[in-house]
Design a protein around this nucleic acid. Sequence first.
RNA 1: GGCCCCGUGGUGUAGUGGUUAACAUGCCUGCCUGUCACGCAGGAGAUCGUCGGUUCAAGUCCGAUCGGGGUCGCCA
Length: 596
Amino acid sequence: MTLFSERIQNGELGLEKVGETVRLLGWVQRRRDHGGLIFVDLRDRSGIVQVVFDPERMGTEFSIAESLRSEFVVSIQGQVIARPEGMINPNLVTGKIEIVAYSLEVLNGAKTPPYYLVDQVDVDETVRLKYRYLDLRRPEMQNVFKIRHRVTQIMRNFFDSQDFYEIETPMLNKSTPEGARDYLVPSRVHPGEFYALPQSPQLYKQLLMVGGMEKYFQIARCFRDEDLRADRQPEFTQLDVEMSFVEVEDILPMMEKLMVKIFAEAVGKEVSIPFPRLTYKEAMDRYGSDKPDTRFGMELIDVGDLVGKSGFKVFANVVAGGGSVKCICAKGCAGMPRREIDDLAKFVSTYRAKGLAWIVMAEEGIKSPIAKFFTEEEMAALIDLTRAETGDILFFVADTYAVVSDALGHLRLELAKRLGLIEEGSLEFLWVTEFPLLEYDDEQKRHIAIHHPFTAPMDEDLQLLESEPLKVRAKAYDMVLNGTELGGGSIRIHRREVQEQLFKLLGFSEEEAVAQFGFLMEAFEYGTPPHGGIAFGLDRMIMLLTGKDNIRDVIAFPKTQSASDLMAHAPSPVADKQIKELHIRTNIEESVADKK
RNA sequence: GGCCCCGUGGUGUAGUGGUUAACAUGCCUGCCUGUCACGCAGGAGAUCGUCGGUUCAAGUCCGAUCGGGGUCGCCA
């Protein structure tokens, strides 16, 4: 019987092993049958090595080699030899050696896989997801999970070295309003009542601080029943961190050190600290985004003052109405065909911009449908303010501040992508700080928390809480890398009075606040230390570390855009008995459920 | 919920409304002792996602539906 423990990994094989007898275990990547001589590329987690089957060296077992097919699982014993002159394969890490087999055992056969398992897959993702266990065999995928593992190990080591405790919090939680839609779990024991899966361990980690744990972290699964995106799954993983007796300045530098460690040890990239910081206002003003990509310029320029008094009614009216007019200067784009400009106008309309005005700084002079509305002086001032030069295009959006920011912020990113302005491999970290505490929701006709309702206001803005709540800034911060929000957190409220005041501002009655969060507020009365923390999106971090543009590629068993698991076929109907036990009933026709 | 894109042998693609749906690769069989995307010869494999409509005739045009992707809303 095979002793698996004697095995050596393919990737460990090199010239220094020449002459040794080894046992290899793995999958047949490819078989090249020359009749009298058979080559097999043997793949395991560590890599690929070529095995040679020669009838003169192995006798009757040679016929087994003839029967090998792709993805057969085999055990091979053989001798490592240096490849003869001229037969070295430079494309293979192990290309200087090969294994001459003298014994072969098929541990398991395999059906022909639906597609050939190599890195340059060009296969419909549906197929990859249905056969996820095959897709995961591809070296590219193996590498993702190797890095993912390393990152979580680095996190654990880091926090351990800083005296943090890793503590688990419940998956069956109380459903609370605010935030995302909950995934609900019906209770069998309490008819008509439901648990909610955690959107994040927020309340529990704060209560761990009340519980005197002082420093906590968790690599926590979170659930949000919202629509999916390229970087959003219904269940995802957060690195969740909370500390007692800290202020903003304790947390940010520590997290910077963590990033240095992760990038150095997981992918060998250098990260320089401290990270630049931008206030929320500055980020919005300059980049139209609270997660600005600073790998390129093309900042937003406010031209409101200049065009507000001009003869161009569209701009003047927006300014008069309290809106804003801004532009970005696309360097060297004067040659852009009209068709593409129209395309960009369509692009910004996605973000509710009503139009995209433009001024082309052509060699022959200014070309623009709006130029005629400006005097020569106004045009000169505009060019001066925007530093537009011959060869550039200015793109303008006039609307509310929010729409202008959103539209031009995204246009800026789109142009950078089309023009190739972003340098591969560059890492631009930054912190965005001083977020507003609240925003007004027109639909619900009430204030809602931008971060979450437990975020502490900045001390200097406390006195504005009653009079001008929308002007209050929060002790909240986001870490941004290359235009992606990696994580965010805040210093929390730790006094009952302040928390009550906040719930009131959010439109909770006293009864509602107590019903939903009474346990938290009661806890605050028993000596709660000042505390704060942060949470990072692990999946997004792995995306950035591995260069994937799709969250499904960094999750072992991901779900599709409609939240289905194509491999396991979840979700699925369940037996009537199960439904009854849970005291629930669906309003879907029986026949529909049967078909599924 | 809105908008956009995709769906043709196992896989990736081609396919003016008109014969037997083409090509590559994979698969199967045979030959082959230095290949590494091995080679050579032969073979099998598709009712074009599904349903309906227009038409003498639909893979192709129209509608619906299902599945997948991107995105806005939603989501921190």
